[in-house]
């Protein structure tokens, strides 16, 4: 592939991935309002379009045309930069996520992934660890008690749970022997005992790690039951109390984009990525893996929303004790046992 076609193909992939991601973000918000509505015996959005399907567009227009207030007591440069930092880092991590196999369009043969790098997992962990700045800086620069408390809570919580999150993924890395997300998915091909797929959650015995990841991910993305940084009953809205219009919407987008990244990573690391039954004509063989991948992401997002509709919020000391005294030792134990098993088998 020449440099020209490489740049062209990459640009097309970037635009496509961003378009799909932003649409998915908008419709995850719709899904959340709809599902939580039904859980609470309400209808959710119904007025704009069939089943309220055009609601995200109406929301977007509303955010764009609302007055963009900047309170007088804020530290302006960081107040403006914080939502940008949050949304940029939330959207960047999609760059290394693989959606499916290699496909051929004409003479161009390319993977369904923006950049296939050999340290994909580390890049995602690095980018998510930088996402803390958006939340922390917005809390500080707003110059308000609620925002500051929310920002402090968020940064403490994200730094703490990042450790359990990272350790829960190391078991999978040991099993696959690679940090490349594509190779991790490839290592999960095939079946055992005739019908059970070789996913890490079954074959590798990583189900403990999967649940550690699940809980740490909820805390990382500041979702119920760990949404202490924006606990409405205590902190008004936490770190984005002083934000309005599009700046507020950017925090919202960042949160949902992070949810989607976390869901993608869960399906890649534990649930076999895009593996699934593939049949039919050539075009269907190209599309089916993407469908299986999106199905897993959808299920994961649905569980996210389901949990939000079901569980109450923790206290902050419970959150910290749970992270450090329960999740972290469990993750370390899982790591040691996985390493022992792999070493004894070799």
């Amino acid at each position: 592939m020449t440099l020209g076609t490489f740049i062209l193909v990459s640009l097309v992939k970037i635009l496509l991935a961003l378009f799909v991601l932003l649409t998915a973000v908008a419709y995850t918000v719709w899904l959340e309002r709809k599902v939580v509505g039904h859980i609470q015996n309400r209808w959710g959005p119904t007025r704009v379009g069939p089943f309220g399907l055009l609601q995200p567009m109406a929301d977007g227009v509303k955010f764009l045309f609302k007055e963009d207030l900047t309170p007088p007591h804020v530290y302006r440069p960081l107040y403006i930069a914080a939502p940008m930092i949050a949304v940029v880092f939330a959207l960047t991590s999609i760059a290394v996520i693989p959606f499916g196999n290699w496909i051929a369009i004409g003479s161009i043969y390319t993977p369904l992934q923006i950049a296939d790098v050999n340290i994909g997992l580390l890049i995602i962990l690095g980018i998510t660890s930088l996402g803390v700045y958006g939340v922390a800086l917005s809390g500080w620069s707003s110059n308000s008690k609620y925002s500051l408390l929310g920002g402090l809570r968020a940064s403490a919580q994200m730094v703490s749970y990042e450790i359990a999150l990272g350790l829960s993924l190391v078991g999978v890395v040991i099993l696959s022997g690679s940090l490349s997300l594509r190779e991790i998915v490839d290592a999960q091909a095939g079946h055992f005992w005739g019908f059970i797929p070789n996913w890490n959650i079954f074959r590798g015995g990583q189900f403990v790690a999967f649940f550690i990841y699940l809980m740490a991910a909820y805390a990382e993305t500041n979702r119920i039951p760990f949404d202490l940084p924006e606990a409405e009953t205590e902190l008004v809205a936490g770190y984005h109390t002083e934000y309005s219009a599009m700046k507020f919407a950017m925090f919202f987008m960042a949160e949902y984009a992070n949810m989607i990244t976390v869901a993608c990573l869960a399906s890649i690391m534990f649930l076999g990525g895009w593996r699934g039954p593939v049949f039919g004509p050539e075009i269907l063989q190209d599309v089916l893996p993407i469908f299986w991948f999106l199905l897993r992401v959808f299920v994961f997002l649905f569980v996210y929303i389901w949990v939000r509709g079901t569980l109450p919020r923790f206290r902050y000391d419970q959150l910290m004790a749970f992270g450090w005294k329960c999740l972290l030792p469990l993750a370390i134990a899982n790591l040691v046992i996985t390493a022992l098993v792999v070493a004894l088998r070799a």
């Binding site: 690095g126 660890s129 930088l130 402090l152 940064s155 730094v159």
Partner: peptide
């Protein structure tokens, strides 16, 4: 990135 930019500097800012 993970250690310095993502963890140590977060503590500084914190």
């Amino acid at each position: 990135v993970i250690v310095y930019a993502g963890a140590i500097m977060v503590l500084f800012v914190f």
